[in-house]
Each structure stands twice: as structure tokens, then as C-alpha cells.
Amino acid sequence: MLKRVHFPPSVLPYLLVAPQVAITIVFFIWPASQALYQSLLLEDAFGLSTKFVWFENFTALFSDDQYLDAFKRTFVFSLSVAVVSMSAALLLAVMADRVIKGTTAYRTLLIWPYAVAPAVAGALWMFLFDPTLGIVAYVFDMLGYTSWNFRLNGNEAMVLVVLAAAWKQISYNFLFFLAGMQAIPKSLIEAAAIDGAGPGRRFWTIVFPLLSPTTFFLLVINMVYAFFETFGIIHAVTKGGPAKATEILVFKVYNDGFVGLDLGSSAAQSVILMAIVIGLTVIQFRYIERKVEY
């Protein structure tokens, strides 16, 4: 942690950490503690008086069907994004690991969606699937599926935001899967081949189990991504609709706080989200500590 050789005490180190610490306190710790405090308050409809209500906001949330639905929805959404994006990325990474020529070219062509902002990705996919104009909607039409309209059908809206969110994350997963596979010693694969295992068998009995740390790590990262960073996609494509079909937790905090102005409930939701982030971060760090070395 600290260098064996270091500088003698002075005011200098305080000056060095000052900017970071000041920003942390003003924009992170203070607002977070405000959220904690707010979550224990109840404000009347006109914002005239507030009273301290202990955990009433929380109990109200957990007995509110809408909130519980949003919770379930968020899990379905995150898990779908993680599964769709990771399986596509794994397939591509396995193939890219097999071919000798062109691995770098394929990598270049697959990594750039990472750079596209979630909101921009949302706009792209919304355009493709636009019920009246979109090209994909047109293809659906030709195939006889004429009723496609993600603006009216909740399930279709969900499929669309999952696709847009997963598309953006493929690059990230692909890079990590490919790196994970290239770290597996070739001798293991060769030994299995000598024993007569074909490519499919080798993948399922050697490569896939050895990739499990990478897979687990990516699962956590993808869940965090789907929980928090997809706000832009949801806001740009569906605004949580139709009829709240795509309202995930992060969107609900924003909507209840900024649009609905229900401060106590929004703050309580923030606190629950904080607990989730802390949980996920702890899982991520514990995993890093026990990182498997090949």
C-alpha cells in the first residue's frame, strides 16, 4: 500500500488529495447522505411540511405492487441482456479464437459498438424497428407479422430495449472472452485432441469450464451495466412505457423524483439501489481476490 521509501510528513499530501476528496464529499457523500435522510421523511402533497417517518417509505415501497413489478422487470431485463449479449459474444469469441487469419480484423470490426452511447444505440434500434418506417418492421410485415408495434405492445418494447442494450455490450464481452480463451494453455487443448476429443467436446469439457471465472465476472459486469447504464436506452426508446412495461428501477427513481416529485419515495428507492450496487461491488471484489490463474 505505502512505499517503503516515502516522503516525510508535510501539508503537501493533503493538498494533493484535496481536489479529489472535496469533489467526493460535495458531489458524492453529501448527496448520498441527503438521499438517506430524505428516505426517512414524508412530505405532504404541496411540499409545505415534512415529517420524520422512520422506515415508512420503505415499507410502503415493498407493499407497492408497482414497485415490486419494477423489481422483477429489472431482473428479467438485466438477465436477458446478460444472456443475449454474453452468448453472442462467446460464440463469436470461440470462432475468432479458432481462425488463424483475420483475428485482429474481426476484433476491430466487433469492438466499436462499445463506443456508442446507450441513448444513441437506443435511437438506432428504435429507427430500425419503427412500426411505420423501420426496415425490420417492414421485414416482419413481409413475413406476415403485421401487428409489430413496440409503442403499444409491452413485450415487444421489452425485446427491443434488450436487443439495443445487448448489442452495445457484445464488444465488451467479446474482448474479455477472447482474452480468457487465449490465456488457456495450448498444451491442454492439444492433449485432449491427442486423446481423440473433437472441437465440440474440447470446448465443453476444457475451454468452457476454464472460462468460468471470466463468465462469472462478465455476468456481474453485465448486470451492473443493465441495472444502471441502460437508463439512456430506456429513456430514449420507450420512456418506461407502454404502460410501464419497460420501467426499470433506475428509470423509476428518475421518474418518481423528477417527474412525479415524490421525494421521499424516490430517495428510498435510491437507497435500495445503493444497497444493490454495494452488493454487486462486493461480489465483484471478492471474485477478483480469488481470481483463478491458469
Binding site: 453529501w30 439501489l273 461491488t281
Partner: peptide, 17 residues
């Protein structure tokens, strides 16, 4: 203190920030 910021993405503290 710096470490804690990792756990406080802007999405969870929108209003107070």
C-alpha cells in the same frame, strides 16, 4: 472515501446531487 464513490453511480443519487 475515494473508494466509496465506486458504489454511488449518479443514477442512484440523482435528486440530491
Amino acid at each position: 472515501m475515494i473508494f466509496i464513490t465506486l458504489m454511488l453511480p449518479v443514477e442512484v443519487r440523482i435528486l440530491p446531487t
